[in-house]
């Protein structure tokens, strides 16, 4: 695919968890997008994609939040999200909140069509094939459910990671099996969630990798929290941190700055 020209105007949808927990992922996204030739803006009226309400059955709050997003993200060439789950919300779900409201539905469809998850945007839209980043590690990659099954993200992160100097990828068994995060599921059914993430950390340990990567903060916090509870030394990072070459001065998730 030829990159769009000239420099597309891209709105970054930061997402709640990146905003609150891991701002560096947002800055990594900005760097990656700018390096790929985008003009990046961060609309200040954004908050949340509405998933917590949507998945709790509170459709009306989800709709209200969605209307706010439609306003906040109007007028950009693209909206890019460093999360498969929030990206999936915007692309696959949000338009259906307005099935009974053709005008808003049309706006939501338009937004959905312009919205991409970060890594797949870099490869599939901007045509990025290699990156100038270094990370000396053996990593393993977890395919987050929404990114994988709603947005078809599987090859893209692996393709870009292959260009990171010093990085080797060691695939885990069942990389496509859910880690047990599931949004509020992890606190509504903590027993089940904990067992699921413990199954996941077993698969991670078997790879011998020292670094776990994924594209969704929820899954990453869940897996990092479990690995650390188990006393594992595996480091956990959002894939964008590695692709942006930011691992040098940013401690891994759940570890303190030295």
């Amino acid at each position: 695919m030829t990159p769009p020209s000239p420099a597309p105007r891209v709105a970054l949808f930061v997402t709640c968890l990146v905003d609150l927990h891991r701002p560096s992922v947002g800055f990594a996204a900005i760097k990656l997008l700018e390096d790929a030739g985008c003009r990046v803006e961060v609309p200040l009226a954004q908050t949340c994609c509405g998933q917590p309400a949507y998945n709790a059955g509170d459709r009306s709050t989800a709709r209200d939040l969605a209307r706010g997003l439609l306003d906040a993200f109007g007028g950009y060439d693209y909206v890019v999200v460093p999360s498969g789950s929030c990206g999936g919300m915007l692309r696959a779900h949000m338009p259906h909140l307005f099935d009974d409201d053709p005008n808003t539905r049309a706006r939501a469809d338009a937004l959905a069509g312009r919205t991409y998850e970060l890594v797949s945007f870099l490869t599939d839209v901007m045509g990025v094939t290699t990156l100038d980043a270094t990370c000396a590690a053996t990593a393993t990659y977890h395919d987050s459910c929404a990114g994988l099954r709603e947005l078809g993200i599987k090859a893209q992160p692996r393709a870009l990671l292959a260009s990171v100097a010093g990085l080797t990828l060691s695939e885990m068994a069942d990389a496509e099996v859910c880690c047990g995060f599931g949004g509020t599921f992890c606190v509504k059914y903590p027993d089940i969630s904990t067992r699921m993430v413990a199954d996941k950390t077993k698969d991670i340990a078997k790879t011998g990798a020292g670094l776990l990567l994924a594209g969704d903060m929820g899954c990453l916090l869940n897996m990092a929290g479990r690995l650390q509870r188990e006393g594992s030394t595996v480091q956990v990072r959002h894939v964008a941190e590695v692709l942006a070459g930011m691992t040098g001065d940013l401690p891994p998730i759940g570890e303190a700055r030295r």
Partner: peptide
């Protein structure tokens, strides 16, 4: 407790994205 019964809770970097931005 739902979270921390079976896993640690990674804590935020310290300031939000929007504050830093």
């Amino acid at each position: 407790g739902g979270w921390t019964a079976g896993r640690d809770l990674p804590t935020p970097e310290g300031d939000t994205f929007f504050a830093r931005y």
